[in-house]
């Protein structure tokens, strides 16, 4: 069963008298273990689509079937559980809790985990922060982290509950090239282990680490094709020129 099936999905925002059509009939199927890059100009509806996929927003029309379940039929509580159990979400604007340490931000999803499936939350959180290269910043609050560091805390938080689907809205938008490739290496590793990943990006260089590229324009899918020979982040990192290291 495909984890994500969208049928003719639309999302319209009412802005006073006018209606903004952010999505105009998007149909899409994403199979388990896919790594999809979503591209498109600013305002093309990428974030709107991600919010719908992440069960944060509801479509105006159309169907969203997640793991065989019609999302529109779920109540708020079931949606919360899906967000907690199945989906990891990296926001375009990070959305970290202010005045809360990086570690506690990363642990936040586990606070609402009722299944107890994650053993030793503290160790998991530390490992997740280590993975994104922030092992030495665990007690920093967001205000005392750089934009790129905040973005990496947000990535660690999205990974902490070991989701089946990772939705990342421009996770490398604030990162230098080297760190971006490091993040892509993490994503590719997770993808190899079976995680389904959808990633929004503006940069074609980043998109070609994915195995499929979808392009949105004016709320419609205008391109959907596999990447011919996706790049391997690990080998790119290995071949990285020493002087160009962008680690802060």
């Amino acid at each position: 069963m495909d984890p994500i099936v969208l049928r003719d999905l639309s999302r319209t925002f009412a802005m006073g008298d006018t209606a903004v059509h952010a999505l105009r009939g998007v149909s899409l199927t994403v199979a388990r273990g896919e790594f999809v890059a979503i591209m498109g100009t600013s305002g093309s509806g990428k974030s709107t689509l991600m919010n719908l996929l992440g069960c944060l927003d509801q479509p105006t029309a159309g169907d969203y079937v997640l793991d065989g379940v019609h999302v529109s039929r779920l109540d708020r509580r079931q949606l919360a559980d899906i967000r907690n159990q199945k989906i990891g979400f990296v926001f375009q604007g990070f959305n970290l809790l202010p005045r809360t340490s990086a570690l506690e931000n990363v642990e936040l999803p586990l606070l609402y985990d009722r299944t107890g499936r994650i053993a030793d939350p503290r160790r998991q959180a530390l490992a997740a922060l280590d993975r994104v290269g922030l092992g030495d910043r665990i007690h920093h609050e967001p205000a005392r982290l750089s934009g790129g560091q905040q973005q990496r805390v947000a990535i660690a938080r999205a990974l902490i509950n070991q989701p089946a689907i990772l939705l990342a809205d421009e996770p490398t938008g604030n990162l230098d090239t080297h760190t971006s490739v490091e993040v892509m290496a993490v994503f590719q590793e997770l993808n190899r282990q079976g995680m389904t990943i959808l990633l929004v990006t503006h940069e074609p260089d980043i998109a070609c680490y994915a195995r499929r590229i979808i392009e949105l324009r004016d709320g419609r899918i205008v391109r959907d094709e596999p990447v011919a020979g996706p790049r391997l982040a690990d080998s790119d990192l290995a071949a990285w020129p020493v002087s160009g290291g962008g680690r802060p």
């Binding site: 992440g54 944060l56 708020r76 509580r77 919360a80 559980d81 967000r83 907690n84 159990q85 979400f89 926001f91 959305n95 970290l96 809790l97 202010p98 936040l108 999803p109 606070l111 609402y112 985990d113 938080r157 509950n161």
Partner: peptide
């Protein structure tokens, strides 16, 4: 409000 949104986004139920 934003904090509430963040908590809900990572899986806080309305009851939480």
């Amino acid at each position: 409000t934003r904090e509430i949104g963040i908590r809900m986004a990572v899986g806080a139920r309305p009851g939480d």
